[in-house]
Simulated scan of single mutants.
Amino acid sequence: MTDPERQRQLQQLEARIDAAKKRGAPKPRADEHYSQANLAWRMVIELVAGLGIGFGIGYGLDLLFGTLPIFMVLFVMLGLAAGVKTMLRSAGEIQHKKLADEAENDAPAKGGKDEGA
């Protein structure tokens, strides 16, 4: 092979490598703000749903038994606790997923070599 031909092949190879890097590069997410808002709404809905279900059950039991709003207050508190528990579980899932994504993105950057040895 002649030297100019080898140079041309190297330039073509470099161009293909650059094109592959550009294809594999992570693209910035334009909908990141909206996904965070969706997660916030999901948590709010979980909390309100717990309160609403607790209120409905308590009010229904109060009507059925003809009692003071004791069941309503009790079940609203239980609904609040269930809503908060569900919110915290959702937040934990979201955090776990985000940490896994960050770890996955950081893994190739470390190179797999032991720097100390």
Rank of each mutant, 00 (worst) to 15 (best):
A25M: 00
K21Y: 11
P26S: 03
S35R: 07
H33L: 12
A15L: 02
E14N: 07
M43I: 00
A15S: 11
A20F: 00
L39I: 05
A19E: 02
M43H: 15
N38D: 11
P28Y: 07
E32G: 04
R23L: 13
E14C: 06
A30H: 12
M43P: 06
D18E: 08
Q36F: 14
A40M: 07
A20L: 05
G24F: 12
M43E: 11
Q36T: 12
A40G: 10
A15I: 06
P28E: 01
K21C: 09
E14Q: 13
A25V: 01
A19R: 02
R23M: 12
Q36S: 12
R42M: 02
R29D: 08
A30I: 10
P26Q: 08
K21P: 01
A30G: 13
E32S: 10
A30M: 08
D18F: 04
A20T: 00
A19H: 00
P28W: 04
P28M: 01
A20E: 00
V44S: 05
K27C: 06
K22F: 06
A15Y: 00
R23D: 09
W41A: 05
K21S: 08
K22C: 01
K21V: 04
R29I: 04
E32P: 01
A15D: 09
G24Y: 09
R16P: 00
E14M: 09
R16H: 11
H33D: 05
K21A: 10
A30P: 11
A15N: 10
R23W: 02
A20H: 02
Q36K: 13
G24M: 08
A19L: 02
V44I: 09
R16N: 12
V44M: 00
R42K: 06
A40L: 13
W41H: 15
E14R: 10
P28N: 04
A15K: 03
E32I: 07
G24I: 05
D18H: 10
K21D: 03
S35N: 08
A30W: 09
D31G: 04
W41E: 09
I17M: 03
K27H: 06
R23V: 14
E32L: 07
L39P: 02
E14A: 12
M43S: 12
D18P: 00
L39A: 05
E32C: 03
R42C: 08
A25F: 03
E14H: 05
D31E: 03
A19I: 04
A19P: 00
G24A: 09
A25T: 12
A19Y: 01
K21T: 03
R16S: 05
R29F: 06
A40T: 15
L39R: 14
K22M: 10
Q36C: 08
S35I: 14
G24C: 08
Y34I: 14
P28K: 07
V44P: 00
V44T: 13
E32R: 15
K22V: 07
A15G: 08
R42W: 05
L39W: 14
P28F: 05
D18G: 08
S35T: 10
A15M: 03
H33T: 15
P26G: 04
Y34N: 15
K22G: 10
